[in-house]
C-alpha cells in the first residue's frame, strides 16, 4: 500500500512542489531505471525513458488515485509503457543473448529483507528465477519486451502452440507462488 507520507508527497507534486517530486524520485528512481534498463537493454535509452517517466509523473500526479492501488506499480506501469513505446520507436530489441542470460539482468539483487516491500518483490524475483529457462524466456519476451505470442514464436523459431503452452504454464506457476507469498 501507499503509505500516508507518500500520499502527501504525491499530493504536493500535483500542486507543483519540486522538493516533493525529488523526494519521490529518490525513493523510486532505481526501480524505474531497473525496469527501463531491463526492457531497453541500453543505459542511455533507459536513462532517457526514466527521465520521461518522471516528467510524466510531474505533469500527471493528479491522475494517481490512492484508492485504486499502490503508487509504485502505477509509476512502473507508466515506465513500462513509455519504455515499450520507445522500443517500438527504435524498432529494436535487445540481443537475445541478453534475454537468455538472467544473470546479466538480475545481478544486482540487494541484500535480503531490508523492508517488507523488498521482501515482496524478492518473492517474485525468485519465482521468476525458479521457472524453467524455456518458460522464463517467453515471460521475458512477453512482459518486458511487449511481444505477442506470435512474435515470440517467430523470434524463437518455435511453434505458436509451444509458446502458448510455455507462457500459460509459467504464468500459472508464478501465480501459485505469488498467492502463497
Amino acid at each position: 500500500m501507499t503509505d500516508a507520507n507518500e500520499s502527501k508527497l504525491i499530493e504536493r507534486v500535483a500542486r507543483g512542489d519540486e522538493r516533493a517530486f525529488l523526494e519521490l524520485y529518490d525513493r523510486h528512481a532505481s526501480r524505474v531505471y531497473g525496469l527501463t534498463l531491463r526492457i531497453l537493454g541500453d543505459p542511455m535509452l533507459a536513462e532517457e525513458v526514466t527521465q520521461d517517466t518522471f516528467l510524466k509523473l510531474w505533469s500527471r500526479a493528479r491522475q494517481y488515485l490512492a484508492e485504486r492501488g499502490p503508487f509504485l506499480p502505477w509509476l512502473l506501469t507508466i515506465a513500462r509503457r513509455v519504455a515499450l513505446d520507445r522500443l517500438r520507436l527504435e524498432s529494436r530489441r535487445p540481443l537475445l543473448s541478453d534475454v537468455n542470460d538472467p544473470e546479466n539482468v538480475w545481478h544486482t539483487v540487494p541484500d535480503p529483507g531490508s523492508t517488507a516491500e523488498e521482501s515482496r518483490w524478492r518473492t517474485l524475483y525468485f519465482a521468476v528465477l525458479s521457472l524453467h529457462p524455456d518458460q522464463r524466456k517467453v515471460i521475458e519476451l512477453a512482459y518486458y519486451q511487449g511481444m505477442s505470442q506470435s512474435e515470440i514464436a517467430e523470434v524463437l523459431n518455435m511453434p505458436l502452440g509451444t509458446v502458448k503452452t510455455r507462457l500459460r504454464a509459467a504464468m500459472e506457476k508464478l501465480r501459485e507462488i505469488w498467492k502463497e507469498g
Partner: peptide
Amino acid sequence: LGESLLTALPPRQPP
C-alpha cells in the same frame, strides 16, 4: 500478478 511482476526486477541506481 502482472502488476507485481513490474516490481519483481531488482533496482538499479540511475546516473
